[in-house]
Amino acid sequence: MKKGALLVLLLIVWAVLAWPFDVQTGALKWSDMAAGLVVALLVLVLARELSPSDVALRVSPVRVFWFVAYAFFLGWYIVKANVDVAYRVLHPDMPIRPGIVKVKTALRSQAALTMLSNSITLTPGTLTVNALEDGTLYIHWIYVRTEDADEASRMIIGRFEWFLEKIFE
């Protein structure tokens, strides 16, 4: 049942990417859809182990609202991250002080942890090296400001945790 829904979703994405099928008429070509079906089935087979149970999203308007808000919030930090990296790279002295620090998050659901890890990687100076199930994250920091786990947690993930809790937990 869940697999069926996923297959339909994959086919829709494929259709959007392959559209318009025929340059002149815009008509749907069955050969395109057949190729899409093959790819979608292949993805399902390859990813059959990658469907954690708690991603069964309990979608609600409130969650969607927070998700959209988060997208904009994250977008701002992504831009900031880039200016930051560009500055460090172009500066003649390259002001970096790299290291791997440990942070702890209270988030537990796999979806939230995944989202958090990816957000960390996209934001200024930080890159997730490993995320453990118990909420421990190892983060490569391009300019280590503190080696203390609690303080680093506050500085790196404090701004996201609040949002992700609203979306996922």
């Binding site: 992504i78 880039n82 990296v85 790279v89 970096i96 790299p98 996209l122 490569h140 391009i142």
Partner: peptide, 28 residues
């Protein structure tokens, strides 16, 4: 930004720092 990412890839010292430049700048 893509050019900055590439410069970072060359200038930064190790694989982790380089990944930072490669993911952030090249993504944006």
């Amino acid at each position: 930004f893509n050019v900055f990412g590439c410069i970072g890839l060359i200038r930064l010292p190790d694989v982790y720092n380089r990944l930072q430049a490669a993911t952030k700048c090249v993504t944006l």
